[in-house]
């Protein structure tokens, strides 16, 4: 199949995502919107499977069937009240997916600085989304205490983690020979950063946090798209990234709060936060 056909079908999928999102913002058409966007996903997956890039189907088939069963059973079984937690888990699952796609891209022949930078970004955002979503899930389901967890010097620790991430990424970009020991440090630090970012936020604010992490998982998919040069990942990922950010903002406004107030409430009033 030619690249033009693949690109054309990707455009069709992107159109379906756009209309799906549009229809989902009105109650009367929301079901149809969800259906449209799932059809878009289906044709994007099918055309990718049929493209000439795919040589070996064995592992894909096994992993996809297993994933579909797990996802379907989880979505069917979850109680109506447990749905926000479930969305958090699914979101974390998408985040680690993007992290792994970025990681796998390191094993291709393309080691240009551009690819390495985008791989680092997809690992960073994917890792934060993954662990942040798991913490959000644990807080909502009260697996861990839902209160804000803060300790002295927490901000300093976060800044140090970020700094270490930047240093490792810069080292990898300027000296690709160091990629393999250092990429594991980047993965570990990204996952740690996600935990550190969500633990100081109280359980009642988790829906907003999940919405923000949802936006991140879109950005992670977008970064992975840059790393492997795939347009549908970039378009769908950035759509979700932007839509998620706006939605987060709308949710904050509905609670009469600002996003920074939600994200840093644990630091501002450690005594009051519950």
């Amino acid at each position: 199949m030619s690249l033009e056909v693949l690109g054309g079908v990707y455009i069709l999928a992107a159109i379906l995502f756009v209309f799906g999102l549009k229809l989902m913002s009105s109650p009367a058409t929301a079901v149809r919107g969800n259906l449209l966007s799932s059809v878009g996903m289906l044709i994007a997956v099918v055309i990718t499977l049929l493209s000439k890039e795919i040589i070996d189907y064995r592992y894909i088939a096994g992993a996809a069937i297993l994933g579909a069963v797990v996802g379907a059973v989880a979505a069917r079984r979850v109680a109506m009240t447990g749905m926000p937690e479930m969305v958090a888990l699914f979101n974390g699952s998408g985040g680690i997916g993007s992290l792994l796609v970025g990681w796998a891209a390191l094993y291709s022949d393309d080691r240009s600085a551009f690819t390495l930078i985008t791989v680092m970004i997809s690992i960073l955002i994917g890792g934060v989304t993954f662990s942040g979503s798991l913490v959000a899930w644990a807080k909502l389901s009260e697996t861990i205490g839902s209160g804000a967890i803060t300790f002295g010097g927490q901000r300093l620790v976060n800044v140090l983690i970020l700094l270490a991430l930047v240093v490792c990424s810069v080292l990898i970009v300027f000296n690709p020979a160091l990629t393999f020991p250092l990429v594991f440090v980047v993965i570990a630090l990204s996952v740690l950063l996600g935990v550190m970012a969500v633990i100081p936020i109280g359980g009642a604010d988790m829906p907003v946090v999940i919405s923000l992490l949802n936006s991140y998982s879109g950005l992670a998919a977008c970064a992975a798209g840059f790393a492997i040069n795939n347009t549908i990942l970039i378009v769908a990922g950035s759509l979700v990234g932007a839509a998620g950010l706006i939605l987060t903002n709308i949710m904050c406004k509905a609670m009469n709060r600002s996003l920074s107030n939600v994200l840093f409430s644990g630091f501002a009033a450690p005594g009051k936060a519950t």
Partner: peptide, 24 residues
């Protein structure tokens, strides 16, 4: 809000396309 968040979250699973390319 919640259904839209969940629907957008499903779209962010588009990373499956990248995963298929990496795996295949």
């Amino acid at each position: 809000h919640t259904p839209l968040m969940s629907g957008a979250n499903a779209i962010s699973g588009i990373t499956v396309v990248g995963a298929i390319i990496a795996a295949g």
